[in-house]
Simulated assay, not measured.
Amino acid sequence: MQERQGSYAWCFSHGVLHHFPAASTPWCTATWAWLAGESREEALAAKTARFGEARFLDALPLTEQLVLAGAGQSAGPR
């Protein structure tokens, strides 16, 4: 499992940015990936740099989909 990078994650099941406060346990059980950044703007920039304009899982290359699906809710940077 990847260490938490911040408090933001992109959810490829819901197609939105989730915010999980630092002291909380992530509540979403869908497929998401932690993003670097301390603000919403920084997290969205990190999402775009890492995944481009992909909003949902099927917009990513198959190999990336498999990595994220296999990592569950702990997909980290590569």
Rank of each mutant, 00 (worst) to 15 (best):
G37M: 00
L35D: 00
T48R: 15
H14L: 04
P26F: 12
P26E: 03
L68S: 09
T31K: 04
F20C: 10
S74I: 01
Q65C: 08
V67R: 11
E64K: 08
L17E: 09
C28Q: 04
F51C: 07
V67D: 03
W32Q: 00
A54N: 11
L68E: 08
A54G: 13
L62Q: 11
S24W: 10
K47C: 03
A59Q: 15
S74C: 09
T63Q: 15
A75M: 07
A9D: 02
T48H: 15
E41W: 06
Q65M: 09
G76W: 07
C28V: 06
A75C: 13
L68F: 09
V16N: 11
D58Q: 08
Q65Y: 11
G15K: 10
G52C: 04
A30I: 02
W34I: 05
E42T: 06
Q65K: 08
A36I: 01
H14P: 00
F12E: 03
E38A: 09
A75E: 04
A69V: 15
G52S: 10
G37F: 00
R40G: 00
A30P: 02
R55V: 15
S13T: 14
S74Q: 04
P21L: 06
S74R: 09
W10K: 09
A45V: 06
L44Q: 05
L57T: 15
G76M: 02
V16A: 14
P21A: 11
A45L: 05
L35V: 06
L35S: 06
A45F: 06
T48M: 04
W34N: 03
L17D: 02
T48Q: 13
W34Q: 03
G37H: 01
L62P: 06
V16T: 09
W10G: 00
P61A: 15
A69C: 06
L60R: 10
